[in-house]
Nucleic acid binder design. Sequence first.
RNA 1: CGGGGUGUGGCGCAGUUGAUAGCGCGCUCGGUUUGGGACCGAGAGGCCGAAGGUUUGAGUCCUUUCACCCCGACCA
Length: 475
Amino acid sequence: MTKKKLLPSKKDFPAEWYTTIIKLADLADYGPSKGSIIIKPYGYAIWENIQNAMNPIIKQKGVGNSYFPLLIPMSLLEKEASHIEGFSPELAVVTIAGNEKLEEPLVVRPTSETIMYNAYANWVQSWRDLPIMMNQWNNVVRWEKRTTPFLRTSEFLWQEGHTAHATLNEALETQKWAMDMYKNIYNNYFAIDGCIGNKSKAERFSGADETMTFEALMPSGKALQAATSHNLGQNFSKPFNISFQTKDGADEFAWQTSWGLSTRSIGGLILTHGDDDGLVLPPKLAPIQVVIVTVNMSDDEMRFANELKTILENGNITTEIDTRDDERFGFKLNKWEVKGIPIIYKIGAREVENKKVTAKARFNKEEREISIETSLNETTKWLDDIQTAMLANSSRNLAENTRTATNYDEFKSIISTHKGFVKVFWNDNSEIEEKIKKETTASSRCMIIDHHEKVGKDFLTGEPSSTEWIFAQSY
RNA sequence: CGGGGUGUGGCGCAGUUGAUAGCGCGCUCGGUUUGGGACCGAGAGGCCGAAGGUUUGAGUCCUUUCACCCCGACCA
């Protein structure tokens, strides 16, 4: 009996592959309205693992989880000019409620800066009231013209952190802290490598002085903006009047940051690690880390399986036994493979006799024989190794697909042949960026912040430039 | 918003020049099976996206409309 092909090829039919994998792995389904998805328990469990990874870090920093209203009076949203300008094309607005036309329309939050800062203004009088640091895990709505499950949906889940500080330095430190957290989460949980840097003027968040971003490179060669952290300066604190008296008795406006990571990250996870056999989950985000699949469901096998499950669970490995006896062995294996389970244990008469299991890693298909005595240590180590290897894989993809261009011709040639990241010296200029985008469909992703004071020439104008940028096509 | 596509059992689809709505998968029941998506038998389930029109007769033709998907443009 041969293995049945369940998915379209990732390489040849990326769009079909992506949507099929989401359904087959039981992550999500389409909702009834445009661009909406239903996140099913298996998909939501991944989101919960992300939350579980981030919450301790957020709380450790002194940022408290909170909840602000879903509906924002239009007038609040209009207080910061560039903010409303940026978001107005994609707002969903409530104009009728309780059968009556509302005097003032209510906007379904596209992000919560305005409603939160309106409240912050009431809570801040003295420098002693600062910093204010709050986060919310919530949903936001942005009416995008073109949607894809997880990557860009009309409604999505995220966390949005919002802080107000007495000094710019403190705000900058917080902005950086948030980005470090995102990098840590992406590297160590998602096993996704990427590039950290600042956004160009054109790509910056509406209302921010500076936007820092984590840009991941997907196997297709397209970039995914994976998380952002904004330095809002005093752009919101002034119109919202978040002001306080300093120690010296002077009046000052607060310095602010906001930062977010959304369910888009799950889309990035699928794209980065998935293959033609289905989803591949890094152990640290996998809702189930080991599945024990038995061949015959005999009493001996069941006893052995339960024994193993207990051992693994006592070692904090999330384990499940597939107890269905109405499905055949091969069917069950495929079912779990498509769901991306990091390690599958197989138990049949042979294994019972030898007190060993045959185990297979989803990520690289490696098979091992594991004896029951050492199963906990071996599995723990193996899961760690898989996690590490998956990140290494992502890093290799990033390194291999980051190329340098010194002039526009080279740039265009790379974008049209290899895609991926293109590193160039460039002086940020929105008009030029617009032109590049028109001609190549690539845009700036970020300005590399940890480059070593190199000086080069702007790849378009030839003028001196000390700033290095990553350009790419993006999702 | 532009281009393309699709709406027919839960899912995937077929349905010819208009004439009693079909197939595969899945599902239910029974049985045989079980080391990489098994098989046999018997069943259940759809007024064909919606509205209007033409016709003796419409899944099929005409008009209108709605929704979703894909590709662009747009987009923290």
